[in-house]
Simulated assay, not measured.
Amino acid sequence: MGVDRLRGGSKKGVYRVRADGPRAASVIVYRWAEAENFWPDVGSPEATDPFAPASGLTPFLAAQRRLDGLGVRVPRVLAVDGSRTRQDADVAVVEDVHGGTLEALLGTDPARGKAALGELADMLAVMHRQLGAQYGRVDVLERGGTAVGSSCEQVVLDRALVDLGEAAARDGRIGSAAGALDDRLRELAERVAPRTSHGLIHGELGPDHVLIDANGSPVLIDIEGLMFFDVEWEHVFLQLRFGEHYGRLARPGLDAHRLDLYALAMRLSLVAGPLRLLDGDFPDREFMAGIADHNANEALSLLPR
C-alpha cells in the first residue's frame, strides 16, 4: 500500500512498507546495496578489523541471533534474501517497532523514558557479562576468524592515529594541535594494563538506536557491529550519547585508564568519520558538519592544560 524511506541509515536503506492483508500492517525492510551506502570508497579495510564497516546480511543475522538468544530485545526477522537474484542487494524484512526512539521518548514522556532506560541498563548488563577470550565482531568470530591487532587498546590507538591524521588534514584546529594529540594518545595507551577477557558490546549505542515497542520496552537496532571488546569503549559512547541520562546506565569497576584513552580516541573518530562521510553525497550535510565541529572542540578539551 505504500513505501517510506526512513531517516538515517548511512550504510543501508531502511524502508517502512505498509501492506493490506491478514498479517502485520507494516514491516521494515533493510536493504544493503552499494547505492544505499553513503560512505566513500576508501579501499578494502581488513574484514577482521573490529571497526571495519559492519554492513550486510551476514553480520546482521549473526548479531540478531546472538542477542535474541540472550533475551535482549531486537526486531524479529520475518524474511531474508541474500541471493542477489531478485535485485542487486541483500534484504532483510523485520518487525516494525512502532513506539519511536528512546531519544524521543525521554523528551516527550520522561517517566516512560526512564523506565525504558532501566530496562536498557538490564540488557546491557546481560551483554557485558558475556565474556570472550578473543575480541572481534561476532560474525567474524563465528566463522573462526581472528581480529587484527594484539589487544583492544592497540586497535583503538592505531585507529585513533589514523583518525588524527585525517582530521588534522581537514580541520585547522586539529591540525595545529596534531603533535600534542599524538603525544597524548600514546601516553594514555602506555598506561593501560593487559586484559584477557572482553564483553559483548553493541559498539554504537545511542538513544536513537533504541526503539520502543508496544509494551514500552527497549529494542536494539543497528546491531551489525556487535562485537566482543572492552566494555569501556561502550561506556564512553553511552556517556557521550546519553548525556544527563547516562547515570542510569553507568556501572562500577571500569578501567579509568581505558576510559581516558577511549574518550580521546572516540572524539577523534567523530571528527574524522563525519568529515570522511562528507566526501560522498550524504544528504544531511549540515548535521554531519556539526558533529565534526563539536567533537573537534571536545577532543582539544581533553589535552592537558
Results as ranks from 00 to 15, higher is better:
residue 191 R to N: 03
residue 91 V to I: 14
residue 145 G to V: 11
residue 259 L to T: 14
residue 123 M to E: 01
residue 20 D to N: 09
residue 170 R to S: 12
residue 64 Q to S: 13
residue 172 G to C: 06
residue 276 R to E: 09
residue 290 G to V: 05
residue 105 L to D: 08
residue 212 I to M: 07
residue 75 P to I: 04
residue 290 G to A: 09
residue 207 P to D: 06
residue 145 G to H: 01
residue 153 E to C: 07
residue 208 D to F: 14
residue 262 Y to F: 15
residue 208 D to S: 06
residue 40 P to G: 01
residue 186 R to N: 01
residue 269 S to T: 07
residue 149 G to Y: 00
residue 274 P to A: 15
residue 152 C to A: 08
residue 126 V to Q: 02
residue 254 L to N: 11
residue 50 P to S: 14
residue 29 V to W: 04
residue 122 D to L: 07
residue 293 D to P: 03
residue 77 V to G: 04
residue 242 F to W: 15
residue 226 L to V: 04
residue 190 E to S: 15
residue 196 T to A: 11
residue 186 R to I: 04
residue 69 G to D: 07
residue 227 M to T: 12
residue 233 W to V: 05
residue 275 L to D: 05
residue 251 R to L: 07
residue 264 L to M: 13
residue 15 Y to W: 07
residue 135 Y to S: 03
residue 71 G to R: 00
residue 236 V to T: 13
residue 276 R to N: 12
residue 179 G to L: 00
residue 156 V to S: 00
residue 36 E to Q: 15
residue 33 A to L: 01
residue 215 N to D: 14
residue 212 I to C: 09
residue 91 V to K: 04
residue 298 E to L: 12
residue 243 G to Y: 04
residue 286 E to M: 10
residue 50 P to E: 11
residue 210 V to Y: 00
residue 243 G to E: 13
residue 1 M to Q: 10
residue 7 R to Y: 09
residue 118 G to W: 08
residue 58 T to G: 10
residue 157 L to N: 03
residue 79 A to K: 04
residue 17 V to G: 03
residue 13 G to P: 12
residue 79 A to W: 03
residue 194 P to G: 10
residue 205 L to M: 11
